[in-house]
Design a protein around this nucleic acid. Structure first.
Length: 825
RNA sequence: GCGGAGAUGGCGGAAUUGGCAGACGCACUAGCUUGAGGUGCUAGCGGGUAACACCGUGCAGGUUCAAGUCCUGUUCUCCGCACCA
């Protein structure tokens, strides 16, 4: 009991207010929810389904603020949709394979699985402590055989269809990770996990998944995602796929039967090609440069500076050899150029310096001929001219508009057999082999007689052995684990050696959200009928850092599964929301900067409700937010204000119900405005920061009206207030719900409806402008006509002063909104 | 270089459709509460002025009765891509 309270001797029979004790309240409801897991169970046969999903976390052992933010957004939506009558699927799992477990093993000798499972249990506690309404009966950990056996199963299906294949290729090798990286995992020439560690090129036999088989569909599908996905993610994907339409043309090498194939988007400029330039890694480069060129060639290949295109100077040398232009027979020198990429097109280009800036730069530097073959339709030709125009100097094609020449010339090349129209993608097939232990074993066997053979379905899963020694040096631990790799060939039964590479962990996250629908199925990855009930995901929420990696791979996987006949949806998710980062002092929270705020510490000090409220309040969810500790305290104070208000008014609910008092009306009006605002925001823009601001305004209003509130309005006000808080602060909401004598859980009750009756005001305050500047305000009855508004405005003392001696030119009246009087003189 | 997002008080941010700029919170100030401190409650809080006037949404123009919002140009910041032939 607080003697200091101003209500302790109040006129009304108010209960003494209670102080907000977050610890007591949250412990109580946490325990309560733990005892009753059915509370969050997903309905079995959804009629009005809503699948809300947040990206699954890597179980590092600790939650960070990014998680708290991501899951607070998703949980608010999940609770709201549930209150709106939807059958909500809101699951959670663990992206549990990956390198950190092996590093932990090295450092502390912990077995990776044991380390991972302990982290999972710790983080699960953290998520529960934050009160997220998740269906834990559907939890999935990707490191468990029940899950990864289906990675293997899918791999076999892809292998059967030629979508998984093995080839020797130049791969990105991170010396720190001692493994291969996918193109997507190389950032600025360095490893995505080890900034500053340059990625090396090595030639290795690798497994690939044929993402390029779906390149066109991955690209065209982007159009259907527009509106539901952020534009910038779609742009990033479009650029990543990088489709370009052009032609491939063969140049015959002089004094040789061999040919050089180039890719160009501007075959119309081929008569202006004054040299061919090969990437230094081009397979024919070594031969063409001859013995005297080897040293220069190697110097260019090894030049690390090539990774940074902004600072690199174009460099190269002539091989001394020539090729013949198939269109005009021109003898064209063959060069090596450091700016030509082996990984794009054919690794060889025809340089047309007159019509390409890069070629112009290169050819100017080395004084190679520059021959213009396109001129603008109007005006002077200035080089380099890269636009479309009219061809000239191009034999029979001279005079043709460029766009037309492109087509005709590609067609001619095809008929004559020295080229063809071609489409090139920047997207490469997905290299999935990793020389690591803690991942899904690739279900293949190498046999001396039969070659590479797939493991039979009935022998799945290929279990990852747990008794391994992790040394961090040399080969993968699996390659040293004889009882793992020693096996028999599935075809001939002879001695075989298992593939000891494991799969990239992005495989795990490419389809996990399907498994959530049917997580305990042990005869197939999932029952297609169940998928049909829940897919596509209605709302996916996560960080923008996954815009290309995870989000392209999972789109690819969905298309493969569809073509396997397992699902019918073309895309995994209709809507994607990318939340902003959590910053502190203008920088991303990180260990190295020492600016981490630990959600669990925050929960201990202020409670989960305050933590959730603050991450939503500090900025709109899609924007980066800057952490301010004092801001957290403000949220805590707000919850205290609400709590004291509800508890001290709880026993006024059952008084005699009479007419609504003026304060009742005022409070109800504010309440219903708030309901309308928050409902609309959930449906449209997700500006939860303003929703919380609206709840604060409502609370402030209730404080001001408090003395005059009666039992005619209070029950509705308190009940709705609690419901409006429920998506954001479930613990305190549940506690207050009980305090006012209602039966929970709060989210099982329907979301409050706006009653327009309460929104009506008897009088309206209308701003009055003179020449567009605010000069006063008038109070008129609601619904007053334009004439009344104008007359009242002109009659207003303040306004009249501004009008005195001037001529009224025009009066703009927006009924119910504004009056603007235009004067002159 | 290309593409995208943004620039609003001391700070985080609001203004959804061109219609009262600065909601809400933080910080700060005052009054009340308190033995004091803290808490709590009430109020003030863009600059400027005694009060008005006036000035004010990165900068310069424009459209409009009316512009943070639309148009043109420009600067800066962040993000993504980057010799993709």
């Amino acid at each position: 009991m607080l003697l200091g309270s101003r209500y302790s001797e109040g006129l009304l029979s108010k209960m003494p207010e209670k102080q907000y004790n977050h610890q007591q309240i949250e412990e109580k409801w946490h325990a309560n929810w733990e005892e009753d897991p059915v509370l969050y169970r997903t309905p079995a046969d959804p009629t009005k389904k809503f699948y809300v999903l947040e990206m699954l976390p890597y179980p590092s052992g600790r939650l960070h603020m990014g998680h708290a933010r991501n899951y607070s957004i998703g949980d608010a939506l999940a609770r709201f949709m549930r209150m709106r009558g939807y059958d909500v699927l809101h699951p959670m799992g663990w992206d549990a394979f990956g390198l950190p477990a092996e590093n932990a093993a090295l450092k502390s000798g912990r077995q990776p699985r044991e380390w991972t499972l302990q982290n999972i249990s710790q983080m699960k506690k953290g998520l529960k402590r934050l009160g997220f309404a998740l269906d834990w009966e559907r939890e999935v950990a990707t490191c468990e055989p029940e899950y990864y056996r289906w990675n293997q199963w899918f791999f076999l299906r892809m292998y059967e269809r030629g979508l998984a294949y093995r080839k020797e290729s130049l791969v990105n090798w991170c010396p720190q990770c001692a493994t291969v990286l996918a193109n997507e995992q190389v950032v600025d020439g360095c490893c995505w996990r080890h900034e500053g560690t340059a990625v090396e090129q090595r030639s290795l036999e690798q497994w690939f998944l044929k993402t390029t088989a779906y390149a066109d569909e991955l690209l065209s599908g982007i159009e259907n995602l527009a509106g539901g996905w952020p534009d910038r993610v779609l742009t990033m994907q479009r650029n990543w796929i990088g489709r370009s339409v052009g032609a491939e043309v063969d140049f015959t090498i002089e004094n040789s039967t061999d040919k050089l194939r180039v890719f160009t988007t501007r075959v119309d400029t081929i008569c202006g090609a004054t040299c061919l330039i090969l990437a230094p890694e081009h397979p024919k480069a070594q031969e063409l440069v001859g013995s005297e060129g080897q040293a220069r060639l190697k110097a260019i290949v090894d030049d690390q500076g090539r990774k940074d295109p902004s600072s690199i100077e174009k460099d190269g040398f002539a091989t001394g050899r020539f090729a013949i232009n198939p269109f005009n027979g021109a003898r064209t020198p063959i060069w090596i150029g450091n700016f030509v990429l082996m990984g794009y097109g054919t690794g060889a280009i025809m340089a047309v310096p007159a019509h390409d800036e890069r070629d112009f730069e290169f050819c100017t530097k080395y004084e190679i001929a520059i021959t213009p073959v396109v001129k603008p339709a109007e005006g002077e030709l200035t080089l380099p001219f890269t636009e479309y125009g009219i061809s000239f100097n191009s034999g029979e094609f001279s005079g043709l508009p460029t766009a037309e020449a492109r087509k005709t010339m590609a067609a001619l090349a095809e008929t004559k057999g020295f080229g063809k129209a071609a489409i090139t993608y920047r997207l490469k097939d997905w290299g999935v082999s990793r020389q690591r232990y803690w991942g899904t074993p690739i279900p293949m066997v190498h046999c001396a007689t039969c070659g590479v053979q797939p493991v039979k379905d009935e022998d799945l899963p290929v279990l990852l052995p747990l008794d391994v020694e992790i040394t961090g040096a040399g080969e993968s631990p699996l390659a040293r684990h004889e009882s793992f790799w020693k096996t028999t060939c599935p075809k001939c039964g002879g001695p075989g050696r298992r593939e000891t590479d494991t799969m990239d962990t992005f495989v795990d996250s490419s389809w996990y959200f399907y498994r959530y629908c049917d997580p305990h199925n042990n005869t197939q990855p999932f029952d297609p009928k169940v998928i049909a009930q829940w897919f596509p995901i209605d709302q996916y929420i996560g960080g923008v850092e996954h815009a290309i990696l995870h989000l392209i791979y999972s789109r690819f996987w969905t298309k493969v599964m569809r073509d396997l006949g397992l699902i019918t949806n073309d895309e995994p998710t209709k809507k994607l929301f990318t939340q902003g980062m959590v910053l502190k002092d203008g920088a991303k929270m990180s260990k190295s900067l020492g600016n981490i705020v630990d959600p669990e510490e925050l929960v201990t000090e202020f409670g989960a409700d305050t933590c959730r409220l603050y991450v939503l309040f500090a900025a709109p969810p899609d924007k980066d937010m800057d952490w301010q500790q004092t801001g957290v305290e403000g949220q805590y104070r707000f919850l205290g204000r609400v709590y004291r208000f509800v508890t001290r008014n709880a026993d006024r609910l059952s008084g005699p119900v009479g007419e609504l008092s003026a304060q009742d009306k005022r409070a109800l009006r504010k309440l219903h405005q708030t309901i309308a605002k928050i409902t609309q925001d959930f449906e449209q823009r997700w500006h939860f920061n303003t929703c919380i601001a609206a709840l604060m305004e409502l609370t402030n209003e209730l404080y001001l009206c408090e003395e005059g509130l009666t039992a005619a309005a209070l029950p509705e006000i308190l009940k709705s207030l609690i419901q409006l808080l429920e998506p954001f602060t479930p613990f305190i909401a549940e506690e207050m719900w009980e305090e006012i004598g209602l039966t929970g859980p709060v989210f099982s009750h329907p979301w409050p409806e706006v009653n327009p009756k309460h929104l009506i005001e008897e009088e309206a305050e209308i701003p009055v402008q003179v020449n567009g500047k605010l000069r006063g305000k008038i109070v008129v009855p609601t619904g007053a006509t334009s004439e009344v508004l104008e007359a009242t405005a002109k009659a207003d003392e303040k306004i009249a002063a501004f009008l005195a001696g001037k001529e009224v030119v025009k009066v703009i009246v927006l009924a119910g909104k504004l009056v603007n009087i235009v004067v002159k003189g």
